[in-house]
Design a protein around this nucleic acid. Structure first.
Length: 257
DNA sequence: GCGACAG
DNA sequence: ATCTTGTCGC
């Protein structure tokens, strides 16, 4: 049985930047969480285009650079039909329960660069399976008003009793997500992001996790982000601005299309 | 007291 | 997530 009550507020506060108001952040999370729709805004069975977003990081001296990629998979074509990328500075640190304050900008920017918008977006991280019910997948969905699903490799908050089954809130026993097993020994945690029911979310993720812990769209974005990261790391020594690197990455996409 | 804790 | 050497296997 896997259980996580999430990090204590004291721990979170100790890791937050100077001048950052945690109380305000929590109010924002509670407010946006109340806007989450947990019903299907689209018929999942008829969905064709599903995007997945992932972010890789580069430590460049005292600056951290984020490399985000959004990939769109067509279920009818069984292939990736488009992908986009974004390169830029990331200043907020990783703090459990505040992931969206760090990754939302890279994720949104990569998503906005997709020429064809998908019907559903998959985000690596949790959605409602979050102590304030607003993981990055829900945060993204509420802001962009598009159906989203949170897909994570480990638990942030909640308890799971079976290899496959519900993720329950430790305090209220409310179902906040679902654990599935698509890869041997490795669980995949699915939770509602926005505009989709948990049942539909689980069905869609199962269709997209082909022998892997992660669904195809996120897997592709993950690989592309790391490819770009490798290229960029070499060029970083040759005094180039982040803007130039971003521009070069957008152009280099054509090599793959 | 020790460990927990998306990416 | 990232850092990081050698090592195992196709």
């Amino acid at each position: 049985m896997r259980v996580s009550r999430g990090p204590s507020e004291g721990y979170v506060r100790s890791r937050v930047p100077r001048g950052f108001h945690l109380e305000v952040a929590r109010s924002i999370q509670r407010a946006l969480a109340s806007k989450v729709v947990e019903e299907d805004l689209v018929n999942i069975d008829n969905v064709d285009l599903v995007s997945g977003v992932d972010v890789a990081y580069i430590n460049h001296g005292d600056v951290e650079i984020g490399v985000s990629v959004a990939s769109t998979y067509s279920l009818s074509n069984s292939s990736i039909i488009e992908w986009s990328c974004w390169v830029g500075p990331v200043t907020f640190p990783y703090v459990p329960t505040l992931l969206s304050f760090r990754e939302l900008k890279p994720v949104v920017n990569a998503y906005l660069r997709l020429r064809t918008k998908p019907q559903v977006v998959l985000i690596d991280g949790h959605g409602r399976a979050h102590p304030y019910r607003l993981g990055i997948a829900s945060h993204f969905g509420v802001c962009m008003r598009i159906p989203t699903i949170g897909v994570a490799k480990s638990l942030l908050y909640g308890k799971v009793d079976r290899v496959e089954g519900p993720i329950l809130d430790v305090g209220t026993n409310e179902v906040i997500g679902w654990a599935i097993r698509c890869a041997p020994g490795k669980p995949t945690y699915v939770s509602v992001g926005y505009g989709v029911s948990l049942g539909s979310a689980v069905n869609l993720i199962k269709r997209l996790c082909v022998g892997s812990q992660m669904p195809i769209p996120i897997l592709h974005s993950h690989n592309m982000a790391n490819n770009l990261k490798r290229r960029i790391t070499k060029k970083l020594m040759s005094e180039k601005s982040i803007e130039e690197l971003d521009s070069e990455c957008r152009s280099s996409m054509r090599d793959y299309l």
